[in-house]
Amino acid sequence: MIPASFDYVRATSLSHAIGLLQDDPDGNKLVAGGHTLIPTLKLRLASPALLIDISGIDELRGIEVADCIRIGALTTHAELLASKPLREVLPIFHQAADMIADPQVRNRGTIGGSLANADPAADWPAVVIALKGELELAGPTRRRRIAARDFFVDIMTTALEPGEVLVAIHMPRPNRGAKFRYRKIRHPASGYAVVGVAATLCLRDDIVSEVMIAITGATSRAFAADSASTHLIGKPLSTENIAMAASLTGEQAECLSDHYASADYRKHLVKTEVSRALASLNGA
């Protein structure tokens, strides 16, 4: 319940934070909302030497909805839930945020923290993959962008290099008529996804013109269900095509097994939830 001792510095700028992180990339850690890190510290599963508080860095804040959509890494789940401009163009943020943890956690936890932590059962990875998002990373020598689908490497492992900070998430503005759905089967204790499905879809004359499905919770990292998308493009969203897309997604998923849920169960949930997500977008 009581963390081991650490030092604490409030970073005054992004470059300040990067500099501090670079001093000891293994021992120093960033903290913003702290809702993943602090429980870990309390259970003494981690004991960093220095916590770098980035919560005051303005550059990491804000939701901008313009030709592109930019979400600063410090944006809390509650802000994403409440943002009306965001909800108008990308309602999936509202749908997913409402299923993340609980109101108090949402008030403090950030999307950047969730993405950088890369918990395989977190919700945002699937959402940003499905939205073809790009993550903006700032390091000691350069800034770069990486596609969300390439960012998640393995359980709790990302493409972030030592000394890099996640700055923001960028997404293209969706086509008019695009539809969105986030579905999730929650673990009853942790609230994390046993399986979560993010789906975006455009229909033109009842034919699928664009589709992207991403899955979280089922496997060691969130992934894009490309085979399903490929199958659906150019076809009507019929019961048969939905079933085939669900089945292809299930086949693509190399599911995790734990003492709560077997890999077989997760695979079935992937199919069921993909199917239900797509069906809900049909005519929605």
Binding site: Y8, V31, G34, H35, I38, P39, K42, L51, D53, S55, A78, P103, Q104, V105, N107, R108
Partner: peptide
């Protein structure tokens, strides 16, 4: 441990006092 910080309900066991 829920308290209100600046108008928001927050779990005070998951917040560092210094922050």
């Amino acid at each position: 441990c829920t308290v209100d910080i600046d108008g928001q309900a927050v779990k005070s066991c998951t917040v560092l006092a210094v922050m």
